[in-house]
């Protein structure tokens, strides 16, 4: 169980590393492919002993960790540095798996369903805002990327928001309603 997941995580990180030149050449693939790939690799890592402890009740600490790490990588400045500064590039390959993917894995299942729903709605609205920012910015936000790539990235954020919305809402539609009445009758009267 652990070994295949570990190797898959390693493979993902390796892929993100090996193909970093083409991936980072375009901000769309850099931000919407490489970064999620690294976070996904982190989510596959096994949780250390004790992560189910009292300090992680409700998953708050872990989710907040991931939120702050994501906020850091949302700064255009961080993206520029990841391209130009090897030390920042290395920290990207470390922090996205360890400070975004892994904490989300450890926090999310413990989070209250309401918090999860709220974060999902928040993520959609936030992606919408990012889409606006990157399509409407009066200046280049990243020195490493062209203005028209910036606009494409904004459109990419919007597409991601729509895709996530469908991904998250579609399973909820499921009119398993036909099966539900039995449960309903039992609990209503």
């Amino acid at each position: 169980m652990t070994l295949p997941r570990l190797s898959l995580a390693a493979a993902l990180i390796a892929a993100a590393w090996v193909f970093r030149a083409p991936l980072e050449a375009d901000p769309v693939t850099h931000i919407l492919v490489q970064l999620p790939l690294l976070a996904l690799a982190g989510a596959l890592l096994p949780g250390a002993r004790g992560t189910g402890g009292a300090w992680n009740r409700g998953g708050w600490a872990m989710i907040l960790t991931a939120i702050f790490a994501m906020a850091f990588w949302m700064l255009p400045r961080s993206i520029d540095a990841a391209v130009s500064d090897p030390a920042v590039a290395a920290s990207k390959f470390l922090s996205l798996p360890l400070l975004v993917g892994l904490p989300l894995r450890l926090g999310w299942p413990r989070a209250h369903p309401l918090l999860r729903g709220f974060l999902k709605a928040q993520a959609l609205a936030m992606l919408g805002v990012l889409a606006f920012l990157y399509t409407h910015a009066p200046v280049r936000l990243c020195n490493a990327y062209l203005a028209e790539d910036q606009v494409r990235l904004g459109t990419g954020f919007l597409a991601t928001a729509l895709a996530l919305a469908v991904l998250w809402v579609a399973p909820l539609l499921g009119a398993q309603g036909a099966a539900a009445p039995a449960r309903r009758h039992r609990s209503v009267s």
Partner: peptide
């Protein structure tokens, strides 16, 4: 309780 959005909307 009612089986998804569709269930609650009486689909």
């Amino acid at each position: 309780r009612y089986g998804g959005i569709g269930g609650a909307l009486a689909w």
